[in-house]
Design a protein around this nucleic acid. Structure first.
Length: 653
DNA sequence: ATAGGGTTAG
């Protein structure tokens, strides 16, 4: 029975290829197969294909394959092509198993060829995919448009691009698929992946017919290069905007640090009656995390629950919420979300660990790490950055060293340059500047700007202009246009009283026409209204009250022993001028405004774009004591919780 | 067959 079936399906004298391939299925035109049997075979084939469709592991696929052979269909291209596609889907290497399956078939149709080509194209090497493609044409088998898209999928680098261009130029001349929408959409994608956005645009512009996928591909491409203007331009021209296109805009703005625009688009999307799914929500959550305000945080959490994508059942939404609450200063709420999640993955754990670290809760971060390694979730490089950060923020040098030693030995995570930067930060902030410098010299990988920057930052904190000079000279090579490095070096000189050198750096900054990123702080007022203050900026309508409130506060603070820290002003000015400047630091303005607009009980949350200065730090400590308020400040690195005169960072930041 | 997603760094 078995051998009979095999004979029927793979005849000794195959019908001419040209006919069979046009029909797409050689078995279909065998004249001597009785109709009923043919139907039976067709049924069996589609049954096996649907079995394959439901496979999710190699073992399952092999079981179905055995079944395929038992039923005598081991020459059936239709079923075997599906088998190869499934093997590719679960990432089974083409050599040897899928390759063998392919070779065991005597008469291969274009779909079977394409399935193998696609496998090599996705996994690499692309050269093998090309070799097969040529082999296919040598046997006079005409490629189908799916063959081209399969090849184009693998063209994501310089080498692939050449091939892709060939396919683009020649292949399209070949036949009917020159107008094929799929091929063009994938061509756009290929050019974009290779960094040839203009070519992608050209394909798009010349297409006779476009669908929402063509538009969205290009919109995403622009947003990935940071050009949200071009992305928005296209988006507005897109005739029918679907969920994915809207989401591309929302997350595009979020990824490009434009949280307000992201929220604005989400709002428009909702007004337009477009449905929302968890992918959209993740973009919105990320935008709220950047705003850092508590009210938006609660709002978006409710929105997510309302759409049925609560953190309990959606790992990605949950992880994004953990990150958001941490960045909004509410680490307790972040932990609540974490606890209630049914499934936790490496993102959930890492976000929570990083969250604890940001808030200076080192022991919570380290405990959670210990808990994590007992589960099936494996720590990754970000997890280790999190635990090292935790150690840094409380000065746990030995613990950090130990973790750094163990990460590769025990957990198989190779220390990257970012981990070295964390270690330099850890040693440096703890005052071990020489050790930090030694570690940089002993690094097996090339130190990058992050590493030298960490050292320079530490030199500024501990007032070491000599080592600062070493770090800065490397940084000026690596990042000649980054103003921050010049400012840090100048500040280090300033606190050592080396005003000549400070002037030298200032001159350099002027020569290079660099502009300082102005210091600003913001605070959330009524229902999502954000008030932003720039250092020295007295244009806020309530400036007069703010100034009075601050002067009053300083007066009361002085009776508690506060003295303005003049070394926080890196300019060679008179004492009076220094004091005046200190009082217009943006976080102080925001604090005064916060005191004016909130009731006596509530916590004051301030966000800031730069590192908080020593003077503001001690000012906030005192203010929290005098006013009895809790003050939470997020600077560009971490959170400070000021309560009863002390800060959670233990004056270590 | 083709489009959208979450954690890090001085």
């Amino acid at each position: 029975m078995v051998s009979l079936a095999r004979k029927l399906i793979a005849p000794r004298n195959p019908i001419p290829r040209s006919i069979s391939y046009e029909l797409g299925n050689p078995e279909a035109s065998q004249p001597f197969v009785p109709f009923s049997r043919l139907q039976e075979t067709k049924l069996l084939e589609s049954h096996l294909v649907s079995l394959l469709d439901n496979c999710s592991s190699l073992i399952q696929i092999k079981q179905v394959h055995a079944h395929v052979i038992r039923r005598g269909l081991d020459q059936c291209c239709y079923v075997l092509a599906k088998l190869l596609r499934m093997l590719t889907k679960i990432n089974v290497q083409m050599d040897p198993y899928p390759r063998l399956v392919f070779h065991q078939v005597e008469y291969r149709n274009p779909f079977l060829w394409t399935a193998l080509i696609r496998g090599y194209s996705i996994q690499g090497p692309l050269s093998e995919a090309v070799r097969l493609y040529n082999g296919m044409r040598m046997e006079s088998i005409s490629p189908v448009s799916f063959t081209l898209t399969a090849l184009l999928k693998g063209c994501s680098d310089e080498l692939g691009l050449n091939l892709g261009k060939q396919i683009h130029c020649q292949g399209i001349k070949l036949g009917g698929f020159c107008k094929d929408l799929f091929v063009h959409n994938i061509l756009i994608d290929m050019y974009v992946k290779c960094g040839w956005l203009d070519c992608g645009r050209k394909v798009f512009d010349e297409m006779s017919e476009r669908d929402v996928i063509s538009w969205t591909s290009l919109i995403v491409a622009y947003s990935k290069t940071g050009d949200m203007v071009a992305a928005a331009e296209l988006f507005e021209r897109l005739p029918v905007k679907d969920l994915v296109a809207w989401t591309a805009m929302v997350s595009g703005f979020a990824q490009n640090a434009k949280p307000r625009e992201a929220l604005e688009f989400f709002n428009r999307m909702q007004c337009g009656g477009v449905e929302t799914d968890e992918v959209t929500l993740i973009g919105v959550i990320s935008a709220c995390a950047q705003l850092g305000t508590a009210k938006y945080a609660n709002w978006v959490h409710d929105v997510a629950e309302g759409y049925g994508f609560g953190p309990a059942n959606h790992v990605m939404v949950g992880s994004a919420l953990i990150d958001m609450y941490s960045k909004c200063g509410n680490v307790e709420e972040a932990y609540k979300v974490f606890e209630n999640m049914k499934e936790k993955n490496v993102f959930s754990y890492s976000s929570m660990i990083v969250g604890f670290a940001m808030h200076g809760c080192a022991s919570a971060a380290l405990d959670l790490f210990d808990e994590m390694v007992k589960t099936e979730v494996k720590p990754n490089k970000v997890t280790f950055i999190g635990v090292l950060m935790a150690c840094t923020h409380v000065g746990l040098v030995e613990r950090g060293r130990h973790l750094f030693d163990m990460m590769e030995k025990h957990y198989g995570v190779e220390p990257s340059v970012e981990h070295y930067a964390c270690m330099i930060d850890l040693l440096g902030r703890a005052g071990q500047l020489e050790e930090a410098l030694q570690l940089i010299k002993a690094m097996p990988i090339e130190p990058n700007s992050g590493v030298w920057g960490a050292l320079l930052g530490a030199c500024r904190i501990h007032g070491n202009p000599e080592i600062a000079q070493v770090a800065a000279s490397r940084l000026f090579e690596l990042e000649p246009d980054s103003i921050g490095n010049y400012v840090l070096l100048a500040n280090t000189y300033a606190s050592a009283g080396r005003w000549e050198d400070v002037l030298g750096i200032r001159k350099l900054i002027k020569q290079k026409l660099l502009r300082k990123d102005p210091s600003r702080s913001w605070i959330e007022g009524k229902v999502g209204v954000i008030h932003e203050f720039y250092a020295g900026d007295m244009t806020h309508p309530k400036s007069k009250e703010i100034k009075e409130a601050l002067e009053d506060l300083v007066g009361r603070l002085k009776t508690h022993g506060y003295e303005p820290n003049l070394s926080s002003v890196p300019y060679d000015l008179s004492e009076e001028n220094k004091k005046r400047i200190l009082l217009t630091h943006s976080e102080k303005l925001a604090l005064a405004y916060g005191l004016l607009i909130t009731d006596n009980e509530s916590t004051i949350r301030i966000m800031k774009n730069l590192r908080i200065c020593e003077d503001c730090h001690s000012f906030m400590c005192g203010a929290s004591q005098i006013t009895g308020r809790e003050i939470i400040i997020r600077d560009n690195k971490r959170f400070h919780h000021f309560r009863n005169g002390v800060c959670s960072c233990g004056n270590f930041w």
